[in-house]
């Protein structure tokens, strides 16, 4: 039985923003724009998260172009699988939440 992984908001949004290759600052901007300014990802937190996700094989670092200091990252097949499972889990949370807390959205 595989462990039931619950991603943090930062991890979730980083994986999502790496659907296409992206560098560090690009990820921060992408996450901010996806969440309409709600999620602010700080650089140190992002750096740590990127390194541990590379170690786990959820994302991969693309070859660095000559003369560029920017490292691009992209989600791997494993990362995508984890992201999809997380989307399912979030769907369950929202469905259950809506079903029980009925009508409270309309007040």
């Amino acid at each position: 039985m595989p462990e039931n992984i619950v991603l943090t908001e930062a991890t979730y949004y980083i994986l999502l923003s790496l659907y296409d290759p992206q560098h560090g600052y690009g990820i921060m901007q992408e996450v901010e724009s996806l969440s309409r300014g709600r999620v602010h990802l700080a650089a140190g937190t992002l750096y740590g998260a990127l390194n541990s996700m590379v170690e786990k094989g959820w994302i991969t670092q693309l070859p660095v172009e000559d003369g560029s200091r920017k490292k691009d990252y992209q989600i791997t097949a494993l990362g995508l699988k984890i992201l999809k499972e997380e989307i399912e889990r979030l769907r369950e949370l929202v469905t259950n939440g809506d079903a029980i807390v009925k009508g409270n959205n309309n007040d």
Partner: peptide, 15 residues
């Protein structure tokens, strides 16, 4: 823009 090094509890705790 805003400047922080850490943006969640996990990274603050590990620091």
């Amino acid at each position: 823009g805003r400047f922080d090094i850490f943006s969640d509890l996990d990274s603050r705790i590990s620091h």
